[in-house]
């Protein structure tokens, strides 16, 4: 810092506005939620202090919470599994496509679409055949009638149907990140490797993959945190239903706070979500630091 030769006070003044804004928008709400989570409160009337009762109920008695946690974590796992695929796709595009911008842009299109539009679009695709659902009609057309389902209404399939939409939407996003990472690797390295006889997949394995690890890490963290917070798409497509079978932590929190008027309880769910996000970020960071050290 001192390389800039600016007194610490000036730095403080410049940092202050942003810091204030950040504190107001991030930490104040978190502490406010933490405070609220110790109350039995309907959001309007009198607050009744209950200590940690909300957490006890949440962790031991809530029939919806643990399945919601499972759905959320599965969501995270699926989105992370997608990233190696995005990376591989990015290497292929980088190697075989002469003007890759078009491809990358087209993969990116779903990302810029509003979630509500995507939700409606996929709802129509998943609809039963009698209501013009594309997927079911295609299955029917292929003579696979027994494979057709009311995808969003059958508890066994609804969650997977939602995962798939999220994967579809964010593939382009991660592809773009990985692609940028790969493009930044100097071509000299590949040329040198070619002379040494490393080509194709071998080059990917020994050069591309190790060098994009930092970018890969960013993608993984983004995917993980993003899926922990997944809310809007589920709200649009199923609203957590049928009968909680697609509830994730965030939709459960919303339903409890706003629909059931249990703000204190909702706040305690929010705190658990914050805690899970923080812990997960720390773990992922630690893991990748190890990996990077090993490679480096």
């Amino acid at each position: 810092m001192n390389a800039l030769k600016v007194p610490a006070r000036t730095i403080a003044v410049f940092v202050l506005p942003c810091l204030l804004l950040y504190v107001c928008l991030v930490f104040v709400p978190i502490f406010f939620s933490m405070y609220n989570s110790t109350f039995d409160w309907n959001g309007i009337g009198v607050k009744k202090f209950v200590g940690l009762d909300n957490y006890v109920t949440l962790l031991t008695k809530d029939n919806v919470f643990w399945p919601a946690v499972r759905h959320t974590l599965m969501f995270a796992v699926f989105s992370m599994l997608e990233i190696p695929f995005a990376l591989y796709l990015a290497t292929l595009i980088n190697r075989y496509v002469k003007k890759p911008n078009f491809f990358v842009t087209s993969y990116f299109v779903p990302v810029i679409l509003s979630v509500v539009i995507i939700g409606q679009l996929w709802k129509t695709i998943y609809n039963p055949a009698s209501l013009g659902g594309m997927l079911n009609q295609v299955l029917d057309g292929l003579g696979l009638h027994s494979w057709t389902h009311a995808w969003l209404s059958e508890p066994d399939y609804a969650m997977y149907a939602l995962y798939f939409v999220a994967l579809w939407q964010y593939l382009g996003y991660h592809l773009l990140i990985q692609f940028t990472g790969i493009s930044n690797i100097p071509t000299e390295i590949y040329e040198a490797a070619k002379i040494d006889g490393a080509d194709g997949f071998k080059a990917d394995w020994f050069i591309t993959f190790p060098l994009v690890v930092p970018i890969f890490k960013i993608s993984i963290i983004l995917a993980f945190i993003g899926s922990l917070q997944s809310f809007d798409m589920i709200m649009v497509m199923t609203g957590g239903g049928p009968a909680h079978s697609t509830d994730v932590i965030a939709t459960h929190m919303y339903n409890m706070s706003f629909m059931s008027s249990k703000f204190g309880y909702g706040s305690s769910i929010a705190m658990v979500l914050v805690a899970v996000c923080l812990i997960a970020t720390v773990i992922i960071n630690a893991l990748f630091n190890k990996v990077e050290k090993k490679i480096g």
């Binding site: 309907n42 239903g241 049928p242 009968a243 339903n255």
Partner: peptide, 19 residues
Amino acid sequence: MNPATSQAHLTSIQNLFVQ
């Protein structure tokens, strides 16, 4: 009924539609 009981009821009935 109060909102929390109502929500439990609403989900319970929704469930009857699927199983």
